[in-house]
């Protein structure tokens, strides 16, 4: 039976990536963040995964309102990205084979767990996938299965639905006959306003950031599902609903408290971290 062995969630703020990879930037907060990523890479290695389930969103690149899935599994044999406009910003590229058998197993298994995943045989991953992959598994030596969640085009699924789909993914993986060890890596947002009147380079609502990370990290499932409504996200920035991928991680962890959860500020942004060692 397949096994989920590790869950790691980080942010995908482009500025975080740009500062981390600017070798001339040796300010203490950047050095600390590089150390954190070194630790996370080691934790992932220690978990000895065979495949990475990579949970993120699509930034209206591959998926658009002509045909918007709530949750989609990428199952083409090969995944790569990001898009040219993201490369122009200095965002990282990544490519990996897709574990097609696991991808199909997730779609099929979903039907027994009340989740009808969409799937795609033609997609690109964007920076929501390439940033966590690049910073957590720079070796690019493992197959992946990308999951795309709609957090940008309302109506988007509720926090409870993200939690349920996370729980279902855990059950589905554990019911698969293959003997593989699966690690989940994920990216999401804290409070953020993009292209709007309240846009800043930094945290939009630091109070929201600490409150929401704490709620998920402590495993307070009922509060998470009750409090994290679209309206509440909206109050803290126009694309803050990108936090919901972390709620899916809580579902994958079956609601237990995270082994590690915190925010590491690195000017101008707040950077979230969640780890569940299983």
């Amino acid at each position: 039976m397949a096994k989920l062995v590790e869950i790691i969630g980080i942010g995908h703020n482009p500025l975080m990536h740009l500062r981390l990879t600017n070798s001339g930037d040796q300010s203490p907060e950047v050095v600390k963040l590089r150390e954190r990523f070194g630790e996370l890479q080691q934790r992932l290695t220690d978990a000895r995964p065979d495949v990475l389930l990579c949970i993120g969103n699509d930034h209206l690149n591959t998926l658009f309102m002509d045909n918007m899935p709530a949750f989609l599994v990428g199952k083409s044999p090969h995944a790569e990205g990001p898009w040219d406009w993201e490369l122009d910003l200095g965002l990282p590229s990544y490519e990996a084979p897709v574990d097609v058998s696991l991808a199909k197993g997730i779609v099929s298994g979903g039907f027994n767990h009340s989740v009808d995943f969409a799937f795609s045989d033609e997609f690109k991953i964007d920076h929501a996938h390439t940033i966590p992959l690049k910073h957590l598994r720079p070796q690019m030596d493992l197959p992946i299965v990308p999951i795309f969640c709609n957090v940008m085009a309302p109506p988007i699924p509720t926090a409870r639905r993200f939690y349920q789909v996370g729980e279902a993914l855990r059950d589905i993986i554990e019911e698969l006959p293959a003997d593989s060890r699966v690690a989940a890596v994920c990216s999401g947002h804290l409070s953020v306003e993009i292209g709007g009147a309240r846009s800043t380079m930094g945290a939009c609502d630091p109070e929201f950031d600490y409150w929401s990370v704490d709620m998920v990290g402590r495993g307070d499932v009922e509060a998470v599902c009750r409090e994290l409504t679209f309206e509440r996200f909206w109050q803290s920035g126009n694309y803050t609903a990108g936090f919901l991928t972390f709620v899916m991680l809580l579902g994958l962890a079956r609601g237990i408290p995270a082994s590690l959860y915190d925010i590491m500020p690195m000017g101008p942004a707040n950077n979230p971290f969640f780890v569940w060692d299983l």
Partner: peptide, 12 residues
């Protein structure tokens, strides 16, 4: 923006 175009793509 006022008409409700997605701010993310409008900015890019």
């Amino acid at each position: 923006y006022s008409m409700g175009v997605q701010p993310f793509i409008l900015q890019t």
